[in-house]
Amino acid sequence: MNRPTITIELFGMPRARAGTKEVVVSASTVGEALAEVVKVSPKLADVFRADGSLSPQYLLSLDGQQFVSDLTHPLRSGDRLLLLSADAGG
């Protein structure tokens, strides 16, 4: 089965580490999408905690409209997933 095509936009620390603004991957869930990003940019391996959940220093937003932390959240083709540094203050 073909998995949906997802664009992951990178901001802040994720962009600096990956050296790119966005990555296009095939993934059915948020967790799968992140795993694909880590394959492209191993420097982002700490996006996952040891238990497989999202590390607290990262945030994920679906199309800039809704923050998500559930890595089983399903994705549809054309979705844009934003990977951000946490801690907005400053």
């Binding site: 802040g12 220093q57 800039g64 934003l82 946490a86």
Partner: peptide, 19 residues
Amino acid sequence: ATAKYRELGTVSNLLTFNR
């Protein structure tokens, strides 16, 4: 937990907020 501040600093907020 503090990597953001070391690596880029708070200026990294700008593009995120813009998006």
